[in-house]
């Protein structure tokens, strides 16, 4: 079970990193979201994995570690705010400049035949 969680963290990180290194805003946002999942699970797992012992006080003998849960809970909500802000920024950049490239290279030739800026009627 530990291996499953660890490998899930690894795969999420890996996929997140790859997407973060892409050249357009949307995949980068996706990549950041995947990295958020990975980080949240990692933080959560720092309380170690416990099955069937939620930190709700009852007559149970043991509980899982509540502290990482509290930290991750706020992290999840904050990550929503962060995602919303970067989405807004990338949207503003795209609407303002008709370009959703993530790199701002003055030297890079902007003219790219593959860009689908004018997507009317692609259906």
């Amino acid at each position: 079970m530990e291996l499953l969680v660890a490998s899930a963290i690894g795969i999420l990180t890996s996929a997140g990193l790859y997407l973060v290194l892409r050249l357009r805003t949307f995949p980068v946002i996706m990549g950041v979201s995947l990295l958020t999942y990975a980080v949240n699970i990692f933080l959560f797992a720092s309380g170690r994995l416990t099955v069937g012992a939620p930190p709700i006080l009852s007559n149970a003998a043991n509980y899982t570690d509540p502290l990482p849960q509290a930290l991750v809970l706020t992290a999840i909500v904050i990550s929503f705010g962060m995602t919303a802000v970067i989405v807004m920024i990338s949207l503003g950049a795209y609407l303002g400049g008709d370009d959703d490239h993530i790199d701002d290279l003055a030297a890079t030739p902007e003219a790219d035949p593959n860009t689908d800026l004018n997507t009317e009627g692609t259906q």
Partner: peptide
């Protein structure tokens, strides 16, 4: 990066 985080998580857990 994936392998590194996986290894670290696994050791940690």
């Amino acid at each position: 990066g994936g392998i590194a985080t996986m290894a670290m998580s696994y050791h940690y857990l």
